[in-house]
Design a protein around this nucleic acid. Structure first.
Lengths: 213, 213
DNA sequence: CGTTAGATTGATCCCTATCAATTTTGGTGG
DNA sequence: CCACCAAAATTGATAGGGATCAATCTAACG
């Protein structure tokens, strides 16, 4: 696996800039070294939906050259470990471990996407925001290590209100109001708009799974 | 690849019965030979979301033994080609083609899931129903063959109104009303509730991507 | 200290959920 | 073949949650 490291190059991306355009065929792939990346899908009339938030150690790009109309954009400053897809093909043919690792990553991504479909499809605004905060809390804590069930009580929300809305299928005003309600209920506390402290994890978990209307 | 055929067994499932329970670890996988399968995720308080509709040739089950709280259920009568996961591991270690095929399938599923997140997150009821009809039309026509962009003008909707609602994130009354509106606009025509004929494909495509309010 | 993008708050409207009542469909036995 | 029944679908009336429109307020930055 050190062989792929030989073919790889580091690349730094500034916050807000696009990593992969939706049209571009993109003949290379990458692993996120540091920073947060969002994957965006757009309708023909301009509305945008964030379909995934990616953290360090996650894979970017298609293993095959099939287009998926997906745009990858740096949410924060991002450092990537890039390599050509041709190298991926060659090495995975020799070492089955790489191919397997890729399958594991894709399976996880699929599971995360389906989990989020449940959030988008049925849940109320309150449940959506609570689910989002739990998602960020869980991912921010355990450094990409699997099996971490607990999460940090204090963490930084990498997304803006607009981005939260695009990920949750809500308007920014609604996101703002739900955050306010959670603060009023002493479930969370915010320090400077972006930093969040979870005061009542049990209630937050409950709110993420039950509609209270 | 004939080797996996030797280890596989055929299995018939009646419409409506569960293939894989959410809790069950499931030490086997399967390929759909005929029929339609739905994948369901549920919240702790009982609400259910259909996260995927699967057609013949698609893969069922997790390649690894990580639980995903997913239930697979036969929508129509289903015929499966089942094999133990252990066999999958062994053969994929010898023949990299199988592992690659699995990765292709998973990548497609991921792309489909993200496409549907766009539908669930941002679209109106009218757009959702139009998107659903196009999805079924496209899959019903080309027998699982890739690259088929066109679709059948007449096809059978395999899902009940309740299931359509669970897939679209809508109530059955809303689904019913949108279908009625599409019929009134001469975009579609229904024969006996389940069979649908698309009268105006261009308008249906337009409605699936633009909000008309 | 001024400028500007982002976030919050308020008021109102509309789409979809909800509740309730038929109507239609599909399956079964007489 | 038809009457009957249960389940599914449709239709109608109402209400509520989130969208929308509009006006501050806040914070980051030169």
């Amino acid at each position: 696996l050190a062989e792929i490291n030989r073919l790889s190059t580091r690349r730094r991306i500034t916050a807000g800039s696009t990593i992969v355009h939706e049209a571009e065929p993109s003949d290379w792939c990458a692993i996120i070294v540091s920073g947060i990346v969002k994957l965006v899908k757009a309708t023909t009339d301009g509305r945008e939906q964030i379909v995934a938030i990616q953290f360090p150690s996650e894979f970017i790009g298609q293993p095959f050259d099939e287009p998926s109309r997906l745009r990858a954009e740096a949410v924060t400053a991002v450092e990537l470990c890039c390599f050509p897809r041709a190298a991926l093909d060659q090495i995975s043919a020799q070492y089955p471990g790489l191919s397997r690792a890729l399958l594991v990553d894709t399976t996880h991504a699929l599971d995360a996407a389906r989990e989020w479909m449940l959030v988008l499809g049925g849940k109320t605004a309150e449940e959506k925001v609570a689910s989002f905060l739990l998602l960020i809390a869980e991912r921010s804590g355990g450094e990409g290590c699997a099996g971490e069930k607990d999460f940090d009580r204090i963490f930084e929300v990498p997304l803006s209100r607009t981005e939260m809305g695009q990920f949750l299928g809500l308007r920014i005003e609604t996101v703002s109001r739900q955050m306010k309600a959670l603060k009023a209920d002493k479930v969370i506390q915010t320090i400077g708009g972006r930093r969040v402290r979870i005061l009542n994890p049990e209630k937050l978990r409950w709110l993420a799974e039950h509609e209270t209307s």
